[in-house]
Amino acid sequence: MGNKKIKKDQLNTLFNELSKDCSVLVPTRSKGYIGFDLWDENNGDFIGWYKNTTIPLKANFFPKVEDMFRFNKGEGGYEIKEILPEEESQIIFGVRPCDARALKIIGTLFADTYKDPYFLKRRENAILIGLGCNEPCDTCFCASMGASPGESQDVDLLCTDMGDELLFETVSKKGEDLLSNMRGLSDSSDGDSSKAKELREAANNKIQRKIDTSNLKEKMRANFENREYWENVSMKCMSCGICTYVCPTCHCFDIHDENNKKDGLRVRNWDSCKFPLFTRMPMENPRHEKWRRVRQRYHHKFEYYDMNFGVIACTGCGRCIRECPVNVDVTQIITGIQSL
């Protein structure tokens, strides 16, 4: 099937139509930060200001806290009732290529060996409509991470902002089916495709921040015990969890019970390797010192994940750089390792 396009002023109608059959999420800043929220006509202005969400897309699939099951103690003992995400299908519009890629990266882990039903169920029910970046941020370095701001193979449909119009390109079968059912779109021409290509190239060229990932695994392994380096780069770190929680690929979690033995929920929630308690055992803690925790985070992303899944667990979205209260910068840390 060919590509389609739509006039931007027709988007409201399109979203209204789509909302009849399923929930449509778009970027909003109604909460005081930018996140995906249910579409309504009042938050249709995002195309004008939207760069990326504050909290990454992962939160829609792996929320900061979610119920796993309910336990209830009756006369016959404990009964357990599984709580799975709702089956309803969801369209998420405005997904940036870095976040779509991140979702794929953590999806590999959630599907590996033991299936994680919570993540996978949500993923199965979601259709991602990507929105390529024409104007990457100062903090973006996706181009160094095997990606490009305007392109994505990890969404179902990919949109490119062409000025007055949005171009829709099919990426997956799911996307193709959706596109064929969308009304109010017109066929796009070869000219549109080449214009989109130019926009993408231009966007790619705007990316200033770069890291070198060649032989990075080996380089990191060689410097694993370089305590001086890690102590230096971690000195200003405040050991909060911001970088991990705004990271689209950080996926560590904890499991807790509601404090009620008779009737309660088991929940899982985000956790962070930056917290000393993360690895604290009764007798010891292998990462009590801050520099060891900082080292763990970067090694996990740039060495271990690559060893295990063949991909670095960083997509260059730049959120950690932007949100860190003391401006710890992953690109400086990796560049520092490469120059050792």
Binding site: G32, K64, S239, C240, G241, I242, N269, F275, P325, V326
Partner: peptide, 12 residues
């Protein structure tokens, strides 16, 4: 409801 418990507030 927005809080993600990153403990940025406490740690800075």
């Amino acid at each position: 409801s927005k809080c993600i418990r990153c403990y940025g507030c406490k740690n800075v």
